[in-house]
Design a protein around this nucleic acid. Sequence first.
DNA 1: CATGAATGAGTCTTCATTCAT
DNA 2: GATGAATGAAGACTCATTCAT
Lengths: 184, 184, 184, 184
Amino acid sequence: MRGKNTKERILKASLKLFSQKGIRETTIKDIAKEVGITEGAVYRHFESKEEIVLGLFKQYSEEFYNKLLNATKSGDSYEERFKNTTKAFISFCFKNPSAFKYLNLFHYLRPEDIKHFSPLPKDAIWNLIEEGIDQGILKVKKEYALAVFVGTLERIFLLVEAGLLKKEEVNMEEIKEIIWKALS
Amino acid sequence: MRGKNTKERILKASLKLFSQKGIRETTIKDIAKEVGITEGAVYRHFESKEEIVLGLFKQYSEEFYNKLLNATKSGDSYEERFKNTTKAFISFCFKNPSAFKYLNLFHYLRPEDIKHFSPLPKDAIWNLIEEGIDQGILKVKKEYALAVFVGTLERIFLLVEAGLLKKEEVNMEEIKEIIWKALS
Amino acid sequence: MRGKNTKERILKASLKLFSQKGIRETTIKDIAKEVGITEGAVYRHFESKEEIVLGLFKQYSEEFYNKLLNATKSGDSYEERFKNTTKAFISFCFKNPSAFKYLNLFHYLRPEDIKHFSPLPKDAIWNLIEEGIDQGILKVKKEYALAVFVGTLERIFLLVEAGLLKKEEVNMEEIKEIIWKALS
Amino acid sequence: MRGKNTKERILKASLKLFSQKGIRETTIKDIAKEVGITEGAVYRHFESKEEIVLGLFKQYSEEFYNKLLNATKSGDSYEERFKNTTKAFISFCFKNPSAFKYLNLFHYLRPEDIKHFSPLPKDAIWNLIEEGIDQGILKVKKEYALAVFVGTLERIFLLVEAGLLKKEEVNMEEIKEIIWKALS
DNA sequence: CATGAATGAGTCTTCATTCAT
DNA sequence: GATGAATGAAGACTCATTCAT
């Protein structure tokens, strides 16, 4: 074992580059260079570029899902659980901006691939919303609720990424209130 | 007649393929075949693939911007203008799904390229929102308002594209109300 | 059309190199260099190396089969047809030594691939032999007869190729007599 | 015990794989896996893949030669020695099909390499044939005799390998008669 | 002696672009 | 204006060989 954690380092470098430049635009050589090894070495750890691509999606998709799922369960009232879920969402975005960008990339570039994975992050939110509607707390069509929830938070993230909004200016409490007001 | 509008046909075919498969995944040969010409002929109308890519962005970005801008001006009250803008947004999405998907691709894959263009569709919305805030009608931070507006509508579109929401079920009136409630 | 008959020239060069060095040992670059083009150009004419490999097998396998089949039908007596078939075999070998070597390569390297092709050269001989046995002219098990016929002639060819026997010393008449004696 | 005879086990595994898939198609990793060791370990026993390739040829070429040579000497009459040699040939083929296929591979893929080795199996037969001709027992040109002898037996083997002839149906006595009739 | 990570030189294949016709 | 053959620079992947452990 010459390098330590090479597999992990490859995944990390891949995520970074994929989210920065895109999947097709990132070559195995780019990844190898970022890690500090040669192209061939990558293939000792992964059978193909596709394995890296899908492996990363699976890993972060599950991680995000679990974070959201936990949040949907933590809190005394429905509203608190709702709030915690928006927090968890925003929190994941900003702690793993590369991962979040990467996951979103799939909506546009590889919608077909997404179908093979479950559960997906949105499923956690979906369930939360359904529950809110069943209890009469949320008052809008569930698809609209999902769109407001996910769409708004994703855009907040993109505005920060684009430099149009400062990270420090992101006030989770306020954002949660806005979404809550829209749906209830 | 056959050779007429070849440039337009190339753009149309490119948009279709780019939005379906991605830019990198679409070759000049693919485009030529879709148009019914040969590879070399494409280069009689465009200097490079990049010219097509950016040309398309410019064209639809401007078209979308203009549609939105007009909408922000048409209506007696601010609320009506706001409503008309959401309608114009949704309307553009569903009439030009390829173009909308294509424009969004740039947020993830080529954020740098976007900066060279102005005005961008969001600028029209941005102005509308600023105005609403100045007049005390909208009550939230303008970045949040933009996030809710654009994020929600984009997600509605994506849900339809993904088959999770039927086009017929999209009720503009209701959606406008939700956004309006969130921001006012 | 910059070069003439490029496709044909690729096939010719491939056959030559494959039969000299083996299929795996011959690269697309080797072939391109032999033809006087670049690697990429090969792919305008063939989708893959495999297409060249199998295409060549099919082409010469059929040609050889047809030559043999015609020979099995030309002649008044069975013996004369038999003789003509040995002549046709030897004749094909020496006129197309590359092709013959190439076809034989498949017995050792790609026996599986052979199964997908029919008819094969040996089928023509097989039928001739069966007929001879049915008529009571040939007196040995048909598999043995095939082995003597094909094995002997192939070895004659290999001895010439190896420089152990001069082409001019190959006396078809005599060889036919030997085989005939063995089987009748 | 496990590490014992590793060299032999590598050779055995290599022969098996080479004869099944071809030399180029067999990787050091394949061989190592078959033996149950790792790639690096192979290089503790052999300096290169080429050393294995040639080592195997040498080993089995000599073994086959010796078997044939012994047979050419065992028997009271020339005819009996001739018969025993055909038996020895067939016997070697069927007891070591991998080795026989492997040796034959060289006729097509690496004729140059063969020249460096002597004696070769055919030399034993060559001498037997020359003797038969000198004694006036065999009546055909010696090259033809060699072709009939070796070609026929090799083809018998290939027919069995291809599943076109059952091993049980191979009657050495009869085959020897056919060859003898052809040459005497 | 053995491991298996890493190297580096290929190998097949793709594709934007050029250019002779 | 159009064709499609050819170029040339990459890109994904392979594999014999080396080497740190």
